[in-house]
Design a protein around this nucleic acid. Sequence first.
RNA 1: GGCCCCUUCGUCUAGCGGUCUAGGACUCCGGGUUCUCAGUCCGGCAAUCGCGGGUUCGAAUCCCGCAGGGGUCACCA
Length: 476
Amino acid sequence: MRPVRTRFAPSPTGFIHVGNIRTALFAWLLARKNDGQFILRIEDTDQNRQVDGSIEHIIKCLKALGLNYNAGPDQPGPDGPYRQSERLELYRSYADQLVAKGRAYADPYSKAELDEFRKAAASNHQPFLFRNHRPANPPVWEYGVTPLRFKSEPKAYHWQDQVMGQLSAGEEAVDDFILIKSDGYPTYNFAHIIDDFEMKISHIIRGQEFIASTPNYLNLYEALAIEPPLIATPPPVLGASGNKKLSKRDGAKDVLSYIEEGYLEPALINFIASLGWNDGTTQELYSVDQLIKAFSLERILKSGARFDERRLLWMNGTYIRNLNLEELTKRAEPFWPEEAGAYEPDYRRRVLVLVQERLKYFAELGELSRFFFVDLPLDPNLIANNAKLAALGSAMHKQLLTQTYTELSKSDFSVDDLTRRLNALLESSGQPAGILFSLIRIASTQAPASPPLAESLEVIGKERSLARLKQQIDAL
RNA sequence: GGCCCCUUCGUCUAGCGGUCUAGGACUCCGGGUUCUCAGUCCGGCAAUCGCGGGUUCGAAUCCCGCAGGGGUCACCA
């Protein structure tokens, strides 16, 4: 068996979304599983669709996720360069070869003429086939001036797809497609075949939009006397609503933005792999290494998988909860609210411990932890919106908080001591925890939600906690 | 319109002729966890397996039709 070499071959036309990256992930997993190679190749043959910075963006994205490649535009390899725009001579030499063999010819038609042919086909309810209009005496091909077409030899094909199984199509699926455009650049249809061959790619993993043109490719492989790689076609990743393929247009997010919001790479990878793939067990959580071990093309599903962000949220939360303190501290670093900068690392760590199990992604850190760092303004709604508490009246609130203030003044503010005194207050006041603790929690945080009372007070500290209680008492 | 592909709880999925009165996970709902949010634990709702015909003692599983959805028919990839 040939050594496994897979590739991710995006065009630099913008960011990478979950659908794109899944294709890359499957290719990467296959390579890693088989001790093979994974290559990044940039398919920049369309001059008009290029978006500045895309290549850097793609590289950043792959690196962030740890999908390391053995060769790519920024990583030289034996069969580079890895940008198609730098391989034009290569495509041209293959094109010349096809011309010499009589398997390619110059396209003499204007765009308007072609449109006429298409319209005629559509009105006959027929698919458009260029080869029905093959010119009897095509002009000599002028590189960079006229487009060059493949002269196909139509026939029916049956082929094996590593995911979809046995596929087939009749000869109507084979046509004379463009090899080299009038600007001298090859089309995807031509370039990828040359490159996959030159780069000794063993498996092509790509989206379903290419199934329909596979017979064309098979025909070209034959004309070139090239043995085709194995082909694996995962189903599309569908958008959150509707049955449409995930697309930028329908709000698909940049994968990098998930990283920026504090999703963990292993969680993203775990989640993305679970879209259309499973190993047949009931396991849900996989480390990257486990994924590599368990992965196989055969277990990729044939039907499309919808992208449900809630599941990602859940998964990411479990990954965050499993972080040890050191990792947690490191990951949280970029997400602290501005005010946290003035505090000791140790203080921040104590906050983190309390907040960890509440985090679904790190961008929430600010909102969940702000009251540990700043004295939030009094928010009367916090009491007003608590029906049981509001019913008690502010005189009672004042009395309870005053009692609390006196008792906590005597505390050393350790969790144990705080808990003891808080419980004593429960008894002496005769109030249920639902009333008393709610009130204290609101007074000492001014936040709609917080970690448990005693733990929060301990971290906030004696001086500051008492000051906050005092402030609330004075306002009542 | 031609050709190709897909179709199990709302979502991700298990399932390869009997163990399926269809299993797991997410979401959602109820309850416990001295207060809130989250987490966690316990419990619950949720797919007559797209529909209709076969084959078989027996079908989510095999076969045939149909319907719905998707892809493609570019000098885009």
